[in-house]
């Protein structure tokens, strides 16, 4: 248990070393395991909104599965282009270290999220409004993403020092990842689950484009 906590502490402090010669794949799998664990924790709490009776209880399971799914699916969709870009930039030799940095950041993101889980639970216990719950969760995800971005900078620091071009690629990754991630989050709805709608894994008719939706909302706000 102590070793486990130390490991988590190490990830958050950016001590997950990128360069030691241990098997990269094993380390990455370990980090993903942690990511799934903490992701499921926060997802389950997020899905615990509203009364836990009947089929409604499934929402906790669905949301628990969806958080790691969101991160992993986004990761694998963004990876090929990032790999090719690293190759063209002449940074292929560092790609193992880059993968570790990315996996450690993802694990860090879910650890931050999981640390917010009690707050979310308190919020649910205090206020019942569905829209407020959605906004609160959005805020938590926003904060966790910001922390993850800081963490990624920390992991990238030695790489950037060695080859300054890594800075550009780090930002490229953040752009690709968030572009795909926002859409992924959109189609994986509902994460919280409106108590008035039936509980289901995918919301029927929820497919569509997050960005188009965003434009429409924006224009209806501006145009009145």
């Amino acid at each position: 248990m102590a070793a486990f906590l130390l490991k988590i502490d190490g990830i958050l402090r950016g001590r997950e070393s990128l360069d030691d010669s241990g098997s990269t794949l094993r380390r990455i799998l370990m980090l993903w395991l942690l990511m799934c664990l903490f992701g499921i924790t926060y997802g389950a709490v997020m899905g615990s909104y509203g009364p836990q009776t009947g089929p409604r209880g499934w929402q906790m399971v669905f949301s628990g599965v969806k958080v790691p799914l969101l991160l992993l699916a986004t990761f694998f969709l963004s990876l090929p282009s990032f790999f090719v870009l690293n190759t063209i930039a002449g940074l292929r030799d560092d790609f193992g270290a880059v993968m570790r940095a990315l996996a450690a950041t993802q694990a860090g993101l879910t650890i931050v999220l999981a640390s917010f889980a009690p707050l979310t639970w308190l919020w649910y216990a205090s206020w019942g409004d569905y829209r407020a719950a959605t906004l609160f969760n959005a805020l938590m995800f926003g904060l966790a993403s910001l922390s993850a971005q800081r963490l990624l900078s920390r992991y990238y620091h030695p790489l950037i020092q060695r080859r300054p071009r890594h800075r550009f690629l780090m930002w490229t990754w953040l752009i690709i990842y968030s572009f795909v991630g926002i859409q992924m989050g959109w189609i994986l709805r509902p994460f919280i689950g409106d108590p008035n709608s039936p509980t289901q894994f995918f919301r029927s008719g929820a497919w569509g484009n997050a960005y188009v939706q965003l434009f429409n909302t924006f224009w209806s706000l501006v145009g009145g």
């Binding site: 090929p80 090719v84 870009l85 063209i88 959109w186 189609i187 497919w207 569509g208 484009n209």
Partner: peptide, 25 residues
């Protein structure tokens, strides 16, 4: 080089194709 980059962006394009209804997007 162009095709390698284009093909590597393919998964993202497919993902949006599957989940998007807007042709212009």
């Amino acid at each position: 080089v162009m095709m390698a980059v284009a093909a590597s962006l393919g998964p993202i394009v497919v993902f949006f194709s599957v989940s998007t209804t807007s042709y212009h997007f």
